[in-house]
Nucleic acid binder design. Structure first.
Length: 587
RNA sequence: AGGGGCGUCGUCAAGCGGUAAGACACAUGGUUUUGGUCCAUGCAUUCGGGGGUUCGAAUCCUCCCGCCCCUGCCA
């Protein structure tokens, strides 16, 4: 053991390309050992798992450096799309992820300074007010293959530009009638550099500056200068901004900026069976295709939280996926692995029956009951235990009984003996059906000698079932979730279809008559546990008026049995008896 | 007269001239009072393709191919 650890220590953990740059900068003393990052969301939507990757990168880097800092900065330069609801949710999500920002900033706090930088550019003949309409600007820009042509307003004098820009700010011109543009190169092969817009006129109420401004700076002008003003050393963003780096550098090179951060671009996260673009996420919410941003099916941080994911699991996931420049799509199975890994360690094991089937123990003393002392975790005694009531009337899972079982079915069937976890061995003696042939109840006998779950005579059973004592059971609502989409890549849309056409109709299944052990009657919202053999669940944070506890299934357990079933020849038809017909899970 | 990026196992991802890490997934055994966990084993003779340099190439050179991003007064 010890030498193994020692061997491991010798191995250098390989750094991703961003941390490699930072390590080099530290070595050369480029920033005197200082490392300053920032997480810069625009408050125009809720954060999702893709942002979690960026959060872990930026805050993570700051945390692992001796002199590292990470700011939270809202990139709020487009009042038309932004809202305080989003800034609040973003702060909550970053905190929940387990990070603390060093400084909190809003790009809008820099508006006055940004204006001064723009004036600087105008005075240096590097920016001009352009009267072209948006359509004309587009036409003048040229195409991917052909150069653009200069705006007729390109050579206005600094005096005239200053006058016009001042009057833009003062509100003398209509929205969209003029813009301030950088004077760079209309023939630049990088279109971003063809005299990009720096300021536009917008009579919109800003969530922070109110009506103080009528002109708003564009991202490319704002972002680099905000970074500079905050003394950011490494400005980390996603790949699609690679083209913008030329402008990022141009602005900082042509203005008296305090410092020049290095922009580094990494590949954004894509996940199978979901969408991760704000536009699409907003569409799902606004069209009522999901129940809000925190719908547990959503890949949002708030959705994952409500689903029962722990911050640690999400952080772990972000570490496992790595950081690189290659466009990639991570398998959802990895995210699921990360929650299971986390919850397996910590979650108390309890009993919950999703689709109850009544079992009467015919030789158990009528009306009696007893309490079994059971651990809450199979390997970690510190999780504690609880008293579990047992009686002659129980519920077991419908799928744990088959009247005519296939070869590899180990669970209960007529004449078969199984173990009830932590309780007794029982043997099925009778099957009771209703007039439709549906199984409504099982009659079983129990062996009093097997109390606790072991037979003194050493006989074995092939299966252990979870169960709940009927008179003691608490009725609960359980929401089962599956992938939001039926296809791996919902962005890959067939001709004439939309991504919403691939929404999984079974992504949410509500079970209203589940039976859980009494311990759970007063479980607090957010409480995470494992229903033995069924999966990890958590108490929904939004409780209904009805008073019944609502559980969200975070993730199923790994399941050999369904795999075996899939590879088995179809079993002889069985009368279905679910209270809610269950679709074949998985696709 | 287009420019900027990226191609290593099914999916992520190390590797940076010395002979293909790791993780998920998958498969097979073992343990087990969860068909869970855990443990063991297997899983790229080959790095988009062709040439070249070299004793030696995923790593260097070269040509080709494929994919992503850029023509918002969005970020």
């Amino acid at each position: 053991m010890e030498d193994k650890d020692a061997a491991e220590e010798g191995k250098e953990k390989s750094l991703d390309f961003i941390r490699t740059v930072i390590a080099q900068d530290n070595e050369t003393g480029k920033h005197a050992g200082r490392v300053a990052t920032r997480f810069p969301p625009e408050p125009n939507g809720y954060l999702h798992i893709g942002h979690a990757k960026s959060i872990c990168l930026n805050f993570g880097i700051a945390r692992e450096q001796e002199k590292g800092t990470c700011n939270l900065r809202f990139d709020d330069t487009n009042p038309a799309k932004e809202d305080v609801e989003y800034v609040d949710s973003i702060m909550e999500d970053v905190r929940w992820m387990g990070f603390k920002w060093d400084e909190l900033h809003y790009a809008s706090d820099y508006f006055e300074r940004l204006y001064e930088f723009a004036v600087e550019l105008i005075k240096a003949r590097k920016a001009y007010v352009c009267d072209l309409s948006p359509e004309e600007v587009r036409a003048y820009r040229g195409t991917l293959k052909e150069p653009g042509k200069n705006s007729p307003y390109r050579d206005r004098s600094p005096e005239e530009n200053l006058d016009l820009f001042t009057r833009m700010r003062a509100g003398e011109f209509a929205d969209g009638s003029r813009v301030l543009r950088a004077k760079i190169d209309m023939a630049a092969p990088n279109l971003i550099l063809r005299d990009p817009t720096l300021y536009r006129i917008r009579r919109a109420h800003h969530h922070r500056t109110g009506d103080a401004w009528l002109i708003y700076p564009m991202y490319d002008f704002t972002h680099c200068l905000s970074d500079s003003l905050e003394g950011i050393t490494h400005s980390i963003c996603t790949l699609e901004f690679e083209n913008n780096r030329a402008l990022y550098d141009w602005v900082l090179d042509n203005v008296s900026a305090p410092c020049h951060p290095q922009q580094l671009e990494f590949a954004r996260l894509n996940l199978t069976y979901t969408v991760l673009s704000k536009r699409k996420l907003i569409q799902l919410v606004e069209n009522g295709l999901v129940n809000g941003w925190d719908d547990p099916r959503m890949p949002t941080i708030s959705g994952l939280r409500r689903r029962g994911y722990s911050a640690g699991a999400v952080r772990n996931f972000c570490e496992k996926i790595g950081v690189a420049k290659r466009a990639s799509t991570v398998d959802m199975a990895l995210l699921e692995f990360c929650v299971r890994e986390d919850l397996n360690e910590t979650a108390p094991r309890v009993m919950g029956v999703l689709n109850p089937l009544k079992v009467v123990i015919t030789n158990y003393p009528e009306g009696e009951s007893e309490e079994l002392d059971c651990p809450l975790h199979p390997t970690d005694p510190s999780v504690g235990g609880r008293a579990l009531p047992f009686s002659g009337e129980l519920y077991i899972e419908q799928e744990d009984f088959m009247e005519d079982p296939p070869k590899k079915f180990f669970r209960l069937s007529p004449g078969k003996e199984v173990r009830l976890r932590y309780a007794y061995f029982i043997t099925c003696t009778d099957v009771i059906k209703d007039e439709n042939g549906q199984v409504t109840e099982l009659r079983c006998t129990y062996d009093p000698a097997t109390k606790g779950g072991d037979a003194p005579d050493g006989r074995k059973v092939k299966a252990t079932l979870h169960w709940v004592s009927a008179p003691h059971a608490c009725t609960a609502e359980v929401r089962l979730y599956e992938h939001l989409f039926t296809v791996e890549n919902p962005n890959d849309v067939e001709e004439g279809k939309e991504f919403t056409d691939y929404i999984n109709p079974n992504s949410l299944q509500i079970l209203r008559d589940c039976k859980v052990e009494p311990l759970l009657a007063n479980a607090a919202p957010g409480y995470q546990c494992q229903f033995e053999r069924m999966g990890y669940f958590c108490v929904d944070s939004v409780n209904p008026e009805t008073g019944t506890v609502v559980f969200n299934r975070t993730v199923t357990l790994r399941d050999q049995w369904t795999k075996i079933q899939k590879t088995q020849p179809a079993p002889k038809s069985q009368p279905k008896q679910d209270n809610k017909p269950k679709k074949n899970k998985g696709n």
